[in-house]
């Protein structure tokens, strides 16, 4: 886990040096923007699926 976090830190560091020419949204120009996309995107997907589970997840033999 330490190694993974170190990798993320390194990648954000490298990201500072990369110049972006074609951006879709201005936020992309912020170094490490995609770090936030990955991390919060994953949490958002987990959170949303967990919220949805209440409605769509049933016992294994639901359909008999």
């Amino acid at each position: 886990m330490r190694l993974l976090l170190l990798t993320v830190a390194m990648l954000v560091g490298i990201d500072l040096l990369v110049t972006k020419h074609h951006v879709t949204v201005h936020a992309e120009e912020v170094p490490g923007f995609y770090a936030a996309v990955g991390f919060f995107g994953a949490l958002l997907i987990v959170g949303f699926s967990k919220a949805l589970a209440r409605w769509v997840v049933r016992e294994e033999d639901y359909y008999g």
Partner: peptide, 11 residues
């Protein structure tokens, strides 16, 4: 960046 941070979130 996406791959690495998604892995963190999964962990």
């Amino acid at each position: 960046l996406i791959i690495a941070t998604t892995a963190v979130a999964f962990y």
